[in-house]
Computed example of a mutant assay.
Amino acid sequence: MSVQAEEEQAVTANARSAGIEAGAAGVPDAAIGRALGDLDPARLRDEYVNQGSFLYLSEFLPADATQRLIDAANALMPEVNRNFIPGHKAGGSVSRHTIDRLQPYIAELYRSPKLIAWLEKITGDKLQLSPEDDPHAYALYYYTRAGDHIGWHYDTSYYDGRRYTVLLGVIDDSSCILDYELHTRDENKPDEPGAVQYPPGALVLFDGDKLRHRVTASREGEVRVSLTFEYVTNPNMRPWRRFISNMKDAIAYFGFRQVFRKALQSAIGGARKTGERA
């Protein structure tokens, strides 16, 4: 068997193990294949490691895939849940649960076997999809009013393992900047500040527990929409951490109805399965 055939077989096996049918991910997976094109994973892996688990690509998604995300973001505008935390953040969010119902292309892109395999090469970790009840697994974030922003923070993992964040630029008619600081958790290296204004189709990848970052405030008349994908190394979460995570998501992002309705449905489903096994 050729090396290429072995790689394709491995990708298919990974997709099946994650509950992904090849046909369902076909179109997005083809777009990712074109995106990876001439990218050198070994060089990008070195860049990622040298920057303390951070990578920025100003061009990643093909134009047609980017346009599909733009169309989806515009279509989901009526579904945006606005949130405001004084001194920390203001903006809008659409969770994976709404995306699943109305714009499944995004979910298919998130599950792309080619994307996951490439991310594994860059991070050096075996990655898994976030659990179905995690509203952050893939979500859209909207900055549509003057002052929309998010302050300095880490994408803290409440899971037993690591959580990796992928940011994809969707719409950027704004002056917003992603400010970040590298190496803040490495005592052997000085903090290294940086900033990017990632355009539609751009990609940012980082370990959520290692990158301190923020998004600066938007101005009147500006619109910015970004898409996040979250992948984990261990999908298990302790109950008290789940409660904290759900409260944070309900208050700061998606609203109590969205977060706790899905959490309750998941708990009921788990209880039924346990009863069936008993």
Rank of each mutant, 00 (worst) to 15 (best):
N234K: 01
V166L: 14
G161T: 04
S17H: 14
L57E: 06
H88G: 06
D209L: 00
N188Y: 08
Y159G: 08
P135L: 04
S93L: 05
I85R: 10
A25H: 01
R277L: 14
S245L: 09
P41N: 05
Y154M: 06
L36Y: 09
C176W: 11
L167S: 11
A31Q: 06
E47T: 15
R82F: 10
G151W: 02
R261S: 15
T233Q: 01
A30M: 09
K273H: 13
F229H: 13
D173G: 13
T216H: 04
P135D: 04
T184H: 07
E7T: 04
A15C: 10
A31R: 03
P28K: 06
Y154Q: 04
G52S: 00
D186M: 00
P62W: 07
N246F: 07
E120R: 01
F260N: 04
S157L: 05
G208Q: 07
S58D: 15
D191I: 09
A271L: 15
H183N: 14
L109A: 00
R145M: 10
G33M: 02
R101P: 01
G161M: 09
L109Q: 02
Y141L: 14
N236T: 12
I20K: 01
I32C: 09
Y180A: 06
E47N: 04
A137T: 10
D179K: 12
L203R: 01
V94D: 07
D209I: 04
A35D: 07
N81S: 13
I99T: 06
A22G: 00
R219L: 14
G147Y: 08
A15Y: 10
L102S: 03
A217E: 15
I177S: 09
M237R: 15
H183Y: 11
D38F: 05
S130M: 13
Y138W: 09
A250L: 03
L129K: 10
R111C: 10
A146L: 01
N50Q: 11
F206C: 03
N81W: 01
Y110I: 02
G26V: 00
F60R: 03
A75Q: 11
W152R: 01
L39N: 03
K262W: 14
K262A: 15
Y141W: 08
D179Q: 14
A13W: 04
V80E: 11
N14L: 12
T144Y: 00
E8H: 02
F60E: 09
I116Y: 06
G169E: 08
S218W: 07
K189F: 05
S245I: 02
V170I: 02
L178K: 03
P239W: 15
A90I: 02
G275E: 08
Y198P: 14
A278D: 09
L119T: 09
L115K: 03
F243E: 11
L76F: 05
Q265L: 15
Y143P: 00
L140K: 05
A35N: 07
G124E: 06
H136T: 03
S58E: 10
I244R: 14
S17I: 05
Y141S: 13
S93C: 08
D133N: 10
R272N: 11
Y164H: 12
R45W: 04
Y56P: 05
V27P: 00
R162P: 01
N188K: 13
H153I: 02
L167K: 06
